[in-house]
Simulated assay, not measured.
Amino acid sequence: MTLFAQDTLMHKEAREAGAVVAHQYAANLPIIEKLITELRASPPHAIVTCARGSSDHAATYAKYMFETQVGLLTSSAAPSVRSVYGSTLKLNNTLFVAISQSGASPDLVATAQAAKDAGALVVAFVNVSDSPLAALADYFIPLHAGPENSVAATKTYIATLAAILQFTAHWSRSAPLLSAVDNLSTDLLQAADLDWSAATKILSNARNFFVIGRGTSFGIAQEAALKFKETSGLHAEAYSAAEVKHGPMAIVGQDFPILVFRQEDQTAESIDSVVEDFIGRGARVMVAGKDFDGAVNLPYIVDRHPAVAPILLVQSFYIMVNALSVMRGYNPDKPPHLNKVTETV
C-alpha cells in the first residue's frame, strides 16, 4: 500500500499544533499566574532543567528564554547523576523544571523527586496528566496536546515550546513577548502551510549534513537533527553557528547540505557570517529566516518576535521532514527500533 505524506499521523498531528496552543494558553493561564506569584514572593537563585530527547531540546530553548528574559542562570541536570550514581544535589532556592511528554521515564521521575526532597520547587511540563511526574510536581503545567500516536513527536514539542514561552512572557512581564503569545496559535496555522519542498529535493539523496541555529533557535536545530535521524535515516548533526567554526567547518565543501534556522536578534550577525562562509565554500545551504544570494531560501513568517520565530520555523520543518521521510521510503509514524515512550533508568 502506497503511503502519502498527507496521510501520516505525523502530518496530521503536526498540523494540530495551532489549535493545541490556543487551548493550552486559555487553560493554563490560572496555574501560570499562581506559579509566578510564588516565584515573585520567593525568587529562586537559579533554574535547573531535566529532560531527554525532544523534551531536552525544548529545555535548550527554555535555557535561552529564562536567561535572556528573566536573568536566571539555567543549567541542565543529567538524570543519571541521581538514577545511576545515586548522588543528591543541593537545590535549595532552586526552580527545577522537568519536561516530558509521557511523564513516565523512571530516571526523570527519580531526579525530580530527589530535587523536591533537596528543597527545589518542582515544575513539570507534561502532556500526560495522570503520569508519575505530573503527580509529584509542586506545579504541573499540562501541555494539552492530546494523544500523540506517531512515534515522531511534533505537536507535543511545539506545545512545550509554547508553554515555556507563555510562562516566560508572564514572568518577565515583557509586553512584546505577551503580544507574541497572543498571536502564536494563528501564526502556527500559517507556518504549517509554507512550502519547504525545495529542501526535500536537496535532501532526498543526502547522507550527512549539518543543522545550524544559535540562541533561541539552537534547540530547534537539535530537534531537527534528531527528526532527520529518526524519520528519514539521515545522519544530521546540530551545531551552534559559533561552534561550527571550531572544527566541523573543515568537512564543509562543495554541495555539502546545510539547513540553517535564523531569527532576527543579537545572534543574526554571527549566523549570517557563517551562512556566507558556507555559500563561499559551495555548500548547498538552505536558510529559513532571511534570504541570501546563493542559498535556497525557505519561506518564513516575517516580522515576528525572535523568541517566537523558531517555534514557527519548526512547525514548517515538521511538515517538510514528514514529506522527506515518505519520499525516502520510510514511515515516519513507525521509525525502526523506536517506541513512543522510552523508559530510561
Rank of each mutant, 00 (worst) to 15 (best):
M320H: 07
E276K: 15
G71Q: 07
I319H: 07
K12L: 13
T160I: 03
V326F: 09
L3K: 03
H337N: 15
T267N: 11
T200G: 02
I31N: 09
S150T: 09
L72R: 08
D255V: 07
H235A: 12
Y64A: 05
S217W: 08
V285W: 07
E13H: 08
Q69M: 14
I31L: 13
T186A: 15
S129L: 06
L73A: 13
E264T: 11
H57R: 08
L95C: 01
V326D: 09
R52S: 06
R281D: 09
N183A: 13
L136C: 06
M65A: 13
E269H: 12
A59N: 09
R207K: 15
A180N: 10
G329V: 05
F4P: 00
I212M: 09
W171G: 06
P142V: 01
D303F: 07
T49G: 08
T200A: 12
A295M: 04
L136Y: 01
E148K: 02
E67H: 03
Q222D: 10
E223Q: 14
H337K: 13
P310S: 00
S240I: 06
L89Y: 07
T49Q: 05
P106D: 04
Y300F: 14
V274E: 12
F228S: 12
V122G: 01
A124V: 05
N208W: 11
P335E: 11
G86N: 02
H305W: 04
A27I: 03
H246N: 05
T94Y: 09
P79W: 01
Q166I: 06
D293Q: 12
E13M: 08
A19L: 11
L136M: 13
S100W: 07
P30L: 07
D255G: 02
G282T: 00
W196P: 00
K90R: 13
A58R: 09
V81L: 06
L203K: 06
E16P: 02
V109W: 03
A191R: 07
E33P: 01
F218C: 04
F66K: 04
I212C: 05
S240P: 09
S204H: 12
F278L: 04
N183G: 10
A192E: 13
T216S: 15
S105K: 05
N205D: 15
Q69D: 04
S232M: 08
T168S: 14
A17C: 10
K245Q: 13
A191H: 09
G71A: 05
L226S: 05
E223C: 03
H235C: 11
L226T: 03
V345A: 12
A78E: 03
E269N: 13
F228K: 03
D107E: 14
C50Y: 01
S174L: 10
N93D: 15
T231L: 12
L39E: 09
Q101R: 13
M249E: 06
V326T: 09
L338D: 10
E269S: 14
V20C: 13
R284M: 12
F278D: 06
M320W: 11
Q263W: 01
K340S: 12
L35C: 00
A225D: 11
D193F: 00
N127P: 02
